[in-house]
Amino acid sequence: MTISPKMRDRFTIFSMLLPTFLVIIGFYIYPTIYNLELSFTDITLLKLRQGGDWIGFSNYWEFLSSSTFFEIAFNTVFWLTAVSVFFRILLGLTFALLLNSKFLADMKLSTVARLILLVPWATPPVVAVIAWRWLFDPTHGSINEFLLWTGFISDPISFISNLKTVWPAVNTIIVWNTTPLIAVSLLAALQTVPEELNEAADIDGANRWQQFRYITLPYLMPTISVLTLMSIIWTFNNFVYVWLATGAGPGTFTNVLATEVYMKAFIDLRIGYSAAIGVTMAVVMALFGALYFRFFGLNDMAEKVG
């Protein structure tokens, strides 16, 4: 039987893509299906070998109807995700504009400023949390010492254990450690804005704000949209900062979905229940991503800029 050149080309392409497909199946699809299967059982760490009994949607219903669900969801959506992403995008854009300014270039400080900005980003999250916990320490922390010295406070503040300050403290750590990535990405986008447009607008009498509003910002919107989506997904699923900074405390005041997954799996030993929370998180992010692209389509933005 003679194989046609077209069939031979298809076979060659398939054989070249097969390793990639196997990697995707092994590292993504299979764990996803297995985790989904676990979420419908009552399996625990104590009976992993025996396996769990099939209980349907009981884990999902128990989680969604629990007394702590709305508190955990609010902490995750508002405090952990919305607040930190908002300040990261805002500060990242501010730093990008500053680094791209003629002032720093004229002062020969652009390179130094960029290196300084990269220091927080190069710091591992574990190190960042430990350093900031020391800064927030009520006894020996530099922040309390400074506030006492300036007279802003009369008594030290326990930022990590005080209900009024714990979330601002956690968000400070996240923003400090992750904003440089946003700033560097926006700086790269800023440097693609045609200078001729700003020069033409300047000749037509447009001020700095108008040039930013009608020229620079539209060029940055596709990048801002992608960075916002990536930041939301990454932060929504993040476990490290909250757990290392507060351990979901005081009590469970800063408990979020990711820490709830960990505690249910490795403290309460309920693997099936923990898997159900994880699947819920994945579904929420998948729906959010689909709606995000639907209502803030990146392709449409790119076409408008182009």
Rank of each mutant, 00 (worst) to 15 (best):
S4K: 08
D9L: 14
R10N: 14
L17H: 04
L22C: 07
F27P: 00
P31G: 05
Y34A: 08
E37P: 00
D42L: 04
R49W: 14
F57G: 14
S58H: 10
L64I: 08
L64Y: 03
L64V: 12
T68D: 14
E71I: 15
N75H: 04
N75K: 06
L80M: 11
A82H: 01
V83F: 05
L93N: 05
F95N: 05
F95M: 13
F95V: 15
L97R: 14
A113I: 04
A122N: 07
P124H: 01
A128P: 08
A131P: 15
W132I: 00
W134T: 02
F152I: 11
F152G: 12
I153H: 10
P156Q: 00
S158H: 10
L163A: 06
K164L: 14
T165P: 15
S185R: 02
L186P: 12
L190D: 03
N198M: 11
A201F: 04
D202S: 15
W209C: 06
W209G: 01
Q210A: 07
Q211M: 13
Y214M: 09
L217H: 13
P218W: 03
S225F: 04
S225H: 05
T228I: 00
M230K: 02
F239M: 00
Y241T: 07
L244Q: 07
L244P: 15
A245P: 10
A245S: 09
G251H: 01
G251D: 13
T259F: 07
Y262V: 01
K264S: 12
A265Q: 10
A265P: 15
F266P: 14
I277V: 09
I277S: 00
V279F: 03
T280P: 13
M285G: 09
A286W: 04
F288E: 02
F288Y: 08
N299I: 04
D300M: 04
M301C: 03
E303N: 13
V305R: 09
G306Y: 00
